[in-house]
């Protein structure tokens, strides 16, 4: 098993959490965490995925100790 720090932002926080350490089977991809957390990706599609502060795709395989940050589409300026 691997431990992942999952951080949620913007609309994903409603009815969920800001930051949790969660355990997943080895070989879990980002996509697996998105599904497991149940964040509302149909209403608010995934905008940005970061692992340890770098951008990745949903297929990226996570490693023990990774910090995964999930954002819907956000912007400003």
């Amino acid at each position: 098993m691997i431990e992942i720090t999952v951080k949620l932002f913007a609309q994903y926080r409603a009815d969920h959490f800001k930051l949790e350490k969660r355990v997943y089977p080895k070989g879990t991809a980002v996509e697996g965490v998105i599904i497991e957390t149940g964040i509302p990706i149909e209403r608010f599609p995934i905008g940005v995925i970061m692992v340890n502060g770098r951008h990745f795709q949903e297929s990226h395989i996570l490693e023990d100790g990774d910090i995964l940050s999930l954002f819907p589409k956000v912007g400003g300026g």
Partner: peptide
């Protein structure tokens, strides 16, 4: 219809950027 100008900005303002 755009998720940023239509959803994110009205809900959180430009300050939604701090975290990302």
């Amino acid at each position: 219809d755009n998720p940023i100008s239509g959803e994110g900005l009205p809900a959180f303002g430009t300050n939604v950027l701090v975290n990302i």
